[in-house]
Design a protein around this nucleic acid. Structure first.
Length: 583
RNA sequence: CGGGAUGUAGCGCAGUUUGGCAGCGCGCCACGUUCGGGACGUGGAGGCCGGAGGUUCAAAUCCUCUCAUCCCGACCA
């Protein structure tokens, strides 16, 4: 490709609406342009990156035995009604009707469609296991699209689905996908971590997310410094402390005028925050109230709470709503003697003694309160957000926390969809049985953004070579000078013949502009040809990632550069530089 | 949906307070000079000032409504 004919409108300044690095650099490097909020066009360089990621995904899906199909973006509502998700998905699903009034949605995922397909086409256990996947545009009408490709409304996703006979066989498919995902993200040059995850609207019990570690990530993960435990904060747990041997005391009412927050009460009573139990009032479902008990220094985790409540439709009781419940004294609510709300306590409360709670009357708290003595708990649940410093549930070591970008998630689904849709096969014993399913997603476009978040500097993007829009840029400083043009053309043609993806910057631009663009777009290898190199009989090669510069004789430059590229590629093979020849 | 902000040339912004010729930088076009880290000079093109309505002799500027975009919270690949 010649740069002079490429549509790559680079910008010196980033558009003001871009907040995160990946969004800014994708815009500045001329890779994407916005069409509407959360909806982007990929320009040639950006689309090259997408295609490179897709190629890796296809290779690894194929290696894992999955077969590629392509399903429609538009999905009929009737399918979604069978599983109830037409109602569950809410406004996030983009809905529309055709000219005859038949309802459709832009697919946010495709469990129903694929289950319907397999139900109709796969009848016998002899045809299982079966794993199908597609790479297709998905649409989710996000409440708040942001961060460019990191949270778009329209995005490119690889979604795979396994159909199995038994739980064990499904776990094997899941494990195969886990391995494939690990290879995919390794090959993309990403520093990632697989963590235990919540299953949310998709369903199932076991799930893991693949997180690219980056400060700008929207997810929080906890991992152990001494073993390999790692989990999303939505499901992370910590072992309970040993119950203290403290003798149980008689509870007592104390005046705490105006002391509403945990911090205020702790200071006022001169006690640590973890000797307080706070009672948070949530409204959920059809206007029901829940009192959630957590230790004073803890935060409630909304994902865990939705599991405990059995619904994702809840919110903290808000300002004006308090007036509807005069028995609830804001700032002084407690579990003792309260009966108008459903009490759910975090398990951690069970090992606490002689703690402080609101007294359900203005300006007062109860001290030396104990479960069993002063109030009963019917429902125990894991509700708190685990944070760095908590103990690892696997080995007891200290947990650390980090931010991550979720680029993939895998689920052991079970029969949620096959049972609801009566998708059955005839087993060896002649009985009809629902498929045991798994579902597996990768955000392709988000992966591109995540790669930038993790690989950039003040000059621009530093693409891992496996997903770079071109592997080598040949920067000719004066393409209108014959000596330079001749050398440049020779290297460009030579590299092309050796299957190196190369772009020739033949534009009539200043040297500075060409260097700056090459760094900004992030080609892994830059070959510089100018007056200086013509005189020396060399070409200069710059490695984008390290800024290392190497000189090669013009005569063997093509061989040396292609060797360099091959070596750089092999570094991103799972298992190290030599793994390429192993498989 | 709640809270906050912004819409002026392709991009970044000034002008709005106090109504009076629509500007600056980058980019773009032409010519010349430059030619190894976002060159310089001269000349040029480019605007429904987000949209609608109103106030006024006069509106980018004041008022009302509306749309869009971004940021902070609840969703997710």
């Amino acid at each position: 490709m010649k740069f002079s004919v490429l549509l790559a409108p680079t910008l010196k300044e980033s558009p003001s609406e871009a907040e995160v690095v990946s969004h800014k650099l994708l815009m500045r490097a001329g890779m994407i342009r916005k069409v509407a909020a959360g909806i982007y066009t990929f320009l040639p360089l950006g689309y090259n990156v997408i295609k490179k990621i897709e190629r890796i995904v296809r290779e690894e899906m194929g290696r894992a035995g999955a077969q590629e199909i392509l399903m429609p973006v538009l999905q009929p509502a009737d399918l979604w009604r069978i599983t109830g998700r037409w109602d569950q998905f809410g406004p996030e699903m983009m809905r529309m009707a055709d000219r005859n009034g038949r309802e459709f949605a832009l697919g946010p995922t495709a469990e129903e469609m694929i289950t319907d397909l397999v139900k109709n086409e796969v009848k016998s256990y002899r045809q299982l296991p079966l794993t199908l996947y597609q790479i297709q545009v998905k649409f989710r009408d996000e409440i708040r699209p942001r961060f460019g490709l990191m949270r778009g409304r329209e995005f490119i996703m690889k979604d795979a689905y396994s159909f199995n006979r038994t739980v064990e066989e499904m776990q094997q498919s899941y494990s195969d996908m886990y391995d494939a995902y690990s290879r995919i993200f390794s090959r993309c040059g990403l520093d990632y971590r697989a963590v235990d995850a919540a299953t949310g609207l998709i369903g199932g019990k076991v799930s893991q997310e693949f997180m690219v570690l980056a400060e700008s990530g929207e997810s929080t993960i906890l991992y152990c410094e001494s073993c390999n435990y790692a989990a999303s904060d939505e499901v992370a747990t910590a072992p309970l402390a040993e119950p203290s041997t403290e003798a149980i005391k008689q509870s007592e009412l104390v005046g705490t005028p105006g002391q509403k927050s945990v911090e205020q009460v702790a200071t006022f009573l001169n006690i640590p925050e973890d000797k307080i139990v706070k009672t948070l009032i949530y409204k959920y479902g059809a206007s029901e109230l829940a009192g959630i008990l957590v230790r004073g220094d803890r935060d409630v985790n909304d994902e865990k709470l939705s599991v405990a409540l059995g619904t994702a439709d809840f919110h903290l009781l808000a300002g004006a709503e308090w007036q509807e419940y005069p028995e609830l004294i804001r700032g002084f609510v407690g579990p003792v003697g309260i009966n108008s709300v459903r009490l759910i306590a975090d398990k951690e409360i069970s090992v606490m003694q002689n703690f402080v709670v609101g007294a359900n009357r203005p300006d007062a708290h109860l001290i030396n309160v104990n479960v069993g003595e002063d109030f009963q708990v019917e429902e125990w649940a894991d509700i708190k957000t685990i944070k760095a410093g908590d103990k690892c549930p696997a080995c007891g070591g200290a947990l650390l926390s980090a931010k991550g970008i979720e680029v993939g998630q895998i689920f052991q689904l079970g029969t949620k969809y096959s049972a609801a849709m009566e998708a059955m096969y005839i087993d060896e014993d002649g009985a009809l049985k629902p498929y045991i399913m798994g579902t597996y997603g990768i955000g392709i476009s988000r992966t591109a953004a995540a790669a930038i978040e993790q690989n950039h500097d003040e000059n621009g993007i530093i693409w891992p070579i496996s997903i770079a829009p071109y592997e080598v840029s040949v920067v000719v400083l004066n393409y209108d000078k014959n000596e330079q043009k001749e050398i440049a053309d020779r290297i460009y043609d030579g590299l092309s013949k050796k299957e190196v993806e190369v772009i020739l910057d033949d534009r009539i631009e200043s040297a500075g502009k060409k260097f700056a663009d090459s760094d900004l777009i992030g080609f892994p290898v830059q070959v510089v040809i100018g007056n200086r190199t013509v005189k020396s009989g060399n070409v200069e090669v710059k490695i984008r990632a390290t800024a290392e510069r190497i000189e090669y004789r013009v005569d063997d430059a093509v061989d040396r550069i292609s060797e360099l590229v091959v070596k750089m590629r092999s570094m991103l093979q799972p298992g190290g530089p030599d793994a390429e020849n192993a498989g």
